[in-house]
């Protein structure tokens, strides 16, 4: 007969893995880059933290290291996804046709920020022209 602690830990592990699976599925199925960033970053943060919590239930003596990894992921995962999304926006990556609101572009035009950097496509076009 296994203790309640072990069963709770195992169920938390499966729940976290299910969130990771949903994140991977969203990464594969979502229509454009920004949706993929949302699907990838949020679900993997929650899924990983659930798996770390489940591991802490199974092995309470590892608690401190697991807490450290969890806190680190909690800080860095949103940061990296935000930096990626901003870089993609500055590069002028196309959004899905269903997207109707672009608040970042609106606030950038209000603040009179510098123009967007040329997108990858125009950069490669220029390269071809220079060569020819």
């Amino acid at each position: 007969m296994e203790s309640l602690l072990d069963m709770t830990g195992g169920l938390l592990l499966v729940a976290g893995a299910a969130f990771l699976l949903l994140g991977g599925l969203g990464l594969w199925r979502m229509p454009d880059l920004f949706n993929r960033i949302q699907a990838g970053a949020k679900t993997t943060t929650l899924g990983t933290i659930l798996i770390l919590a489940g591991t802490a239930f199974l092995h309470p003596e590892w608690g401190f290291k697991l807490l450290l990894i969890g806190l680190f992921l909690l800080f860095t995962n949103p940061l990296s996804s935000q930096v990626l999304a901003r870089a993609a926006h500055r590069r002028g990556i196309e959004t899905s046709p269903k997207t109707s609101v672009d608040l970042l572009a609106d606030s950038l035009s209000e603040q009179d920020m510098p123009e967007k950097l040329p997108s990858e496509k125009t950069l490669s076009d220029k390269g071809i022209e220079e060569k020819s």
């Binding site: 592990l13 976290g16 893995a17 990771l20 994140g23 991977g24 990464l27 880059l33 993929r36 960033i37 990838g40 970053a41 993997t44 943060t45 899924g47 990983t48 798996i51 770390l52 591991t55 199974l58 092995h59 590892w62 697991l66 990894i69 992921l73 995962n77 990296s80 996804s81 990626l84 870089a87 993609a88 590069r91 990556i93 990858e120």
Partner: peptide
């Protein structure tokens, strides 16, 4: 198809790998 898709997929791959390492520790 774009480089950014590959980078976000790489990000997710690394986080999933961290959970793999934790599971193998278990």
């Amino acid at each position: 198809p774009s480089t950014f898709d590959r980078v976000i997929a790489f990000d997710v791959l690394t986080v999933v790998s961290i959970t793999f390492i934790v599971l193998s520790a278990l």
